[in-house]
Structure formats: structure tokens, C-alpha cells
């Protein structure tokens, strides 16, 4: 099986050992739309038709992690079983998985609720209003869910948004915080310290352990933000456990 010897082979899926009972199929060592789409499509294919022993599969930005049962298979055997699936099609050209949704999400940009909007706008050479307009105009996709339950990584913002994370940590941002860095947007499912820039605040509850559908978003879903006032966000919190998010099917 392949070992992580040459990591810089662009656009070639590589299979690596990841843990005592796992493999990683990586479609790119840096983030690209095609590698992300390949990972989403490959995981969807595994959901439909997984080789023996696979217990679960999860995507990160450009790779798919497979956890398997050591009672049923091992790394070399499973890597061998994955090869026909990898060879079956050009995963970088694959369609996005079906069942995706478009979510329209209200958010407060700037104000005391999201105090770092002016810092980010200054880095972009924009007014806070124009930076907000650009964020709301950007077509964003859930590239992966991870780190914490229901937490989406959204992308990809235009190239000028390739701003580094802060060198210091913000001690705490609230649940539903909308943060940006490195051409990505993250929405936090829990209150957390972070190095990302806090530019917006939503009322989204991305993980609700007590709800029938505990996870709001799925990888591949699209999001569009629209600005609301802090008072409107308060009203939304009071009346809607989903934080005012409205969805429609995309396929």
C-alpha cells in the first residue's frame, strides 16, 4: 500500500494509515474546490457501497477518513479493496452529493456582537459596509463539518480574503459566532476561544442534543448570509430554535 513518501503529487488520491483502525484517502494537500468535491463525492459513494469492515467514513476539507473493524480487515486489505472504487471514476470531476440544501441565514455584522469586522475590513481595504456586502454576496458551501459537533467550515471566499488568523486568541466567542480567516468562514457550535476573526453573529444552534435532528447542516449544503440588526437577532433567538435559518432543496 502507498506510504506518505511523496506528499506533493497534485490531484492524485493517496491512501495513508491513520491510526490503528483507520485509513485516510487524501485528494489534495492544499484546499481546492475540486479536492473538496472529490472528498464529498467519495464519501457519498462509500456510504452507498463500503468495502467489508468499514464502520464509518467522515470527510475533512480534502480527505476522507475511514474507521474499520480490526476483527474484519486490516490496513493493507482495506486499501486494496478501496482501489477499484478510487479507479472507478475521476473523483475530481464528480458531482456533489444529492440532498443538498441552500440555507439563508440572518446575522449581525459588526457592532458589539461581532467586534472585529472593522479590523478585517481594514485588512481588505474596504469599509465595514462593503466587507459585509461581500460576505453576504459570497456563495459559500459547507466544505466539511468537524472539530466540534455540527461545526461547519464554509468556503471559499474570494482570494483577497486570504488573511491569516490572529496571533493572539480571542478568549471567548459565543455559540453562533461567524468568524473568518484564510478564505474560510467558520460558525461555532459552542462558545470557544479562537484565533479566527469574529465579524458576525448568528442565532444558529448547529448542534442541539435534545432535538430530533441534532445536526443542522450537512457537508455540501450552501449558505447565504443576510444582515439584520441586533434587535432583530434577539427576536429571532426568542422565536426560532434554528436561529432563523430557512432552507430549500438544491436538487
Amino acid at each position: 500500500m502507498s506510504r506518505p513518501v511523496s506528499s506533493e503529487q497534485p490531484d492524485q488520491p493517496e491512501v495513508h494509515v491513520l491510526g490503528i483502525d483507520g485509513l485516510r484517502v487524501r485528494f489534495g494537500s492544499s484546499l481546492s474546490e475540486a479536492a473538496n468535491r472529490a472528498a464529498l463525492a467519495f464519501r457519498a459513494a462509500l456510504e452507498a457501497d463500503a468495502p467489508p469492515g468499514v464502520e464509518e467514513a467522515a470527510t475533512s476539507l480534502t480527505s476522507v477518513y475511514l474507521r474499520f473493524s480490526l476483527a474484519d480487515t486490516d490496513h493493507a486489505q482495506l486499501a486494496g479493496a478501496l482501489q477499484p472504487l478510487l479507479d472507478r471514476q475521476d473523483w475530481y470531476q464528480a458531482d456533489l452529493p444529492r440532498g443538498r440544501r441552500l440555507w439563508r441565514v440572518p446575522a449581525v455584522f459588526g457592532t458589539k456582537l461581532a467586534p472585529q469586522l472593522p479590523d478585517v475590513a481594514a485588512k481588505l481595504g474596504l469599509t465595514p459596509e462593503d466587507a459585509t456586502a461581500a460576505l453576504c454576496a459570497a456563495p459559500l458551501r459547507v466544505q466539511t463539518i468537524g472539530f466540534a459537533p455540527g461545526q461547519p467550515y464554509l468556503g471559499e471566499l474570494p482570494p483577497e480574503w486570504d488573511i491569516p488568523r490572529q496571533t493572539d486568541l480571542t478568549p471567548r466567542v459565543p455559540e453562533g459566532a461567524l468568524v473568518v480567516a484564510i478564505r474560510q468562514v467558520v460558525l461555532f457550535s459552542v462558545s470557544t476561544p479562537t484565533g479566527w476573526w469574529h465579524v458576525g453573529q448568528t442565532a444558529l444552534r448547529l448542534f442541539r442534543p435534545d432535538a430530533a435532528e441534532p445536526f443542522l447542516l450537512r457537508p455540501g449544503d450552501e449558505l447565504r448570509f443576510h444582515g439584520v440588526s441586533p434587535e432583530e437577532l434577539d427576536n429571532i433567538r426568542d422565536r426560532d430554535p434554528e436561529g432563523g435559518a430557512v432552507s430549500e432543496r438544491l436538487d
Partner: peptide
């Protein structure tokens, strides 16, 4: 609980 890595859990 297994099976929820894809949802970040």
C-alpha cells in the same frame, strides 16, 4: 457513540 465523526461528534 460511534458513527457521528462526519457530523463533528
Amino acid at each position: 457513540r460511534t458513527g457521528y465523526l462526519a457530523q463533528g461528534l
